[in-house]
Structures are given as structure tokens and as C-alpha cells.
């Protein structure tokens, strides 16, 4: 079977499997929205400050909130089919628009954090596997266990304390210098300066996971026959590590990298709050503070869908990387 065919078949299978999950997520979202105290009419009435019972009832019937639950579910699905997540009285904007504004910030932060975590984790894993059982391995193991135990929001604050307050090297929050008229390379540097602390805070935990995983996978790959063959035909240890061991050890790491997408999103909520990063996470925080449940549940729905997309992507990448993964 050719590569393209294989990927196509994997794609069809994973999409088909994702359908019930998507439906389940939508239904859970709808019922959580029902459970939330106060509906959109209450919120609007509260905002206006002078609503009578009659106005609230009129608002309810306008939004269809006086309909039976099942009809409301149908209306909700209908709205979703038109890519509408509802309306936020707080921002006076459709929820989908608000989320759309914030999404790129979060995706940029998560991607950077994931790249840092993978690069750092794999590098540490290689060192640990190369010196397995000796002191570099032990020292890095301890450091990694520590990374694994540090809450992201706290290390974020500590990094601000060190690099912004004490040393003054990096900005303590935001995503770009406000009002700076720069372009090209300077713009890139400016963005990077704002990105580095939040991305590092978010990635420490995953560096810990990937380094342990990479270490175990490297040790397993080292014991394989083809590595002995490579050594027997006189390849240098470096070539063996990079071309033969590492390539095969990377597969398990990419598998879990996809699984961690949801976790990264959750971590982003806290880290973005610490760094006032204009992303979905901080939007979720603001929504909680203002009890804006339509926005909050819109974020929950969208982030779940992002996780599904990430999982499908990982499946496809794996089908492409490893011909042994056939369609089950």
C-alpha cells in the first residue's frame, strides 16, 4: 500500500471514530450550560439594572429560553451548525468572534511551549540514556522529578521575579510592546522576549515527561538487533545514536505529544493569567470572574475540538512515519 493511500485510510478511520466523541462533547456542553446558574436573560436583565419580570420573560422568549430542554438542544445544535456559539452580553460580541480573537495567541504560546518541551526533553533524554546509571543520569533525573512537581503558575511568578523584577531582562507580562513602531527582525525579537517566560513556564512539566520517555525509549532501542548490526559494521557511536536509536525512539514521544495537547491547554489557562497573555486561557479566567458561562462553555467546546484535531494529526503523522501502523 502506498504512503498516500495509507494516510488516506487512517484519516477516514480516525475521523469516523471522532464523530461520537464530538457529539458527546456537544451534549455535555449543552447540559453544563443548562446547569449554569442564571441564563442569558438573567445576565442581560442584570446588566440593564432596571428589568421587570415582564422584560425578563420577554427576553426569555426572544432567546427561546422558555422552550422545553430538548427543543433548546435542537436550537443549540442548529446554532453550532451555523458556527454560532451564542452571544456574550458582557463583551457585546458573538462568542465565536471573541474566541477567534484570542485563539492565535494561545496556539502560538502552546506551539512554542511544545517545541521547547520536545527539544529540551529529547535532549535531556539522550544525555540520560547515554550515561544511564552514571552521575549525569542521576543528577538530571532529580532535576526532572523536580520539574515534574512544580506548579506552572508558581514557576511563572518566580521567573518574573528573577528575570523581570530582579534582573530586568525580560518583560513581566503582555504579548508585545505597546505602541512600538517596529517591523521585521526587531518585531520578531520583541515578540520572542514576551514569549520566552510564559512558554518556558508552560513547558517545564512536559520537559520532565518527554525526557523520561525519551530515556526509556532510547534504552529500549539500544537493545535492538539492528543497533548491534550497526555497531558491527563499524559505524561511529554518534551515527548509531542519531540515525538508528534516536529515530526509532522518537515514535513513542510523538504519540504522547498529541495526548498532551489538552493538558497544555489547561496549563495555558493558568500561565496566561500569570503573564496577562492575550489568549484563550485568560479569556476563560475573565469569563469565570464575570460568570459569563456562554463564553466559558464556548472555550470548553472549542478546546475539546482542538484536542480531537490534534489527535487526528498525530495519527496521520504516525501513519506517515511508521509504515507498520496499518489500518486496524
Amino acid at each position: 500500500m502506498s504512503g498516500i493511500q495509507r494516510i488516506g485510510k487512517t484519516f477516514r478511520r480516525t475521523i469516523w471514530q471522532a464523530v461520537p466523541t464530538v457529539i458527546g462533547i456537544i451534549v455535555i456542553n449543552f447540559f453544563l450550560l443548562q446547569l449554569a446558574p442564571g441564563d442569558a436573560a438573567d445576565v442581560l436583565a442584570g446588566e440593564s439594572g432596571s428589568a421587570t419580570m415582564e422584560t425578563v420573560a420577554a427576553l426569555r422568549s426572544r432567546f427561546g429560553l422558555d422552550q422545553p430542554v430538548l427543543l433548546q438542544l435542537v436550537a443549540y445544535l442548529d446554532n453550532l451548525a451555523h458556527l454560532s456559539l451564542g452571544y456574550s452580553p458582557r463583551y457585546n460580541l458573538p462568542v465565536a468572534d471573541i474566541i477567534g480573537q484570542r485563539l492565535p495567541g494561545t496556539v502560538a504560546l502552546m506551539t512554542t511551549a511544545l517545541v521547547i518541551a520536545l527539544a529540551g526533553g529529547i535532549a535531556l533524554g539522550i544525555v540520560m540514556a547515554t550515561f544511564a546509571g552514571r552521575w549525569p543520569d542521576r543528577v538530571i533525573s532529580i532535576v526532572v522529578t523536580l520539574f515534574y512537581s512544580i506548579p506552572g503558575f508558581w514557576i511563572g511568578l518566580m521567573l518574573i521575579l528573577l528575570f523581570s523584577v530582579k534582573l530586568g531582562w525580560l518583560p513581566s507580562g503582555g504579548a508585545a510592546t505597546i505602541g512600538a513602531d517596529i517591523s521585521g527582525f526587531d518585531l520578531l525579537i520583541d515578540r520572542a522576549r514576551y514569549m520566552v517566560l510564559p512558554a518556558v513556564s508552560l513547558s517545564l512539566f512536559y520537559i520532565a515527561i518527554y525526557s523520561r520517555l525519551a530515556r526509556a525509549a532510547m534504552l529500549e532501542a539500544q537493545a535492538q538487533d539492528y543497533v548491534r548490526t550497526a555497531a558491527a559494521k563499524g559505524l561511529s557511536p554518534l551515527t548509531i545514536t542519531v540515525r538508528h536509536v534516536l529515530r526509532n525512539a522518537l515514535l513513542p514521544v510523538t504519540t504522547v505529544a498529541g495526548m498532551h495537547f489538552g493538558g497544555l491547554l489547561g496549563g495555558a489557562v493558568v500561565v496566561e493569567t500569570v503573564y496577562s497573555w492575550p489568549g484563550l486561557g485568560r479569556l476563560a479566567f475573565e469569563a469565570v470572574m464575570s460568570r459569563d458561562f456562554s463564553v466559558l462553555l464556548g472555550i470548553l467546546l472549542l478546546s475539546s475540538l482542538l484536542v480531537i484535531i490534534a489527535n487526528v494529526t498525530v495519527d496521520l503523522v504516525q501513519a506517515w512515519l511508521d509504515p507498520r501502523i496499518e489500518t486496524r
Partner: peptide, 11 residues
């Protein structure tokens, strides 16, 4: 497992 657990927790 698909729904990001921390966001679900917050909700």
C-alpha cells in the same frame, strides 16, 4: 479524556 480536564474542572 478528550475534554481538557483543567478547563472542565474550572467550568
Amino acid at each position: 479524556q478528550t475534554i481538557p480536564s483543567f478547563i472542565l474542572l474550572v467550568v
